[in-house]
């Protein structure tokens, strides 16, 4: 049986956890087709639809697998099979639309539909592939990376 005190504690924990997580989150997995892993702070986990994408995450798609991520500024990132994508930095202020997005495609292919950050502050958004750095002026594009 749950005691009244325990219930309050549980509710407080939930109420505190949700908004904090929402703030730290860079984005959310909307498409996981096949096997996709996320490496966060040295720990490798299987990605799930609805799961969080955080700054610093390395997203790895297996052969025949796709991953679709919507970031908090509505940027949409879609990775092809055999890809490795790193979210190097992400921040987004929903009031001012200021923030930063730096991502690197280490291997594979990535389709990008840019979001509110690129619209409001294009200089704050960059993508890397190989030795190239791509600055975005509010647009859609595809990246390819040969891998190391």
């Amino acid at each position: 049986m749950i005691k009244p005190g325990m219930m309050t504690c549980l509710l407080v924990a939930l109420c505190a956890a949700v908004p904090v997580q929402a703030e730290q989150r860079a984005g959310t997995f909307k498409v996981v087709n096949g096997t996709v892993h996320v490496e966060r702070a040295g720990v490798k986990e299987v990605a799930q639809i609805g799961g969080a994408v955080m700054q610093g995450d390395r997203v790895v798609t297996a052969p025949d697998s796709f991953a679709g991520i919507t970031l908090r500024d509505n940027t949409r990132l879609t990775a092809s099979p055999d890809s490795t994508l790193v979210i190097d930095a992400f921040s987004f202020d929903t009031t001012t639309h200021k923030g930063r997005l730096n991502a690197s495609l280490k291997k594979g292919r990535l389709a990008v539909i840019s979001g509110q950050l690129a619209k409001a502050n294009p200089e704050s958004v960059t993508y890397n592939t190989g030795t190239m750095t791509i600055g975005v002026r509010g647009t859609e594009f595809i990246l390819e990376a040969a891998g190391e």
Binding site: M132, I134, V136, E140, F141, A146
Partner: peptide, 22 residues
């Protein structure tokens, strides 16, 4: 195997821009 960026038209057919630095 290549490092490449390809600009696409958006859903409404409009084309933005990217600046590629190396």
């Amino acid at each position: 195997a290549m490092n490449r960026v390809i600009l696409l038209p958006d859903a409404s057919g409009e084309v933005g821009a990217v600046v590629v630095m190396s």
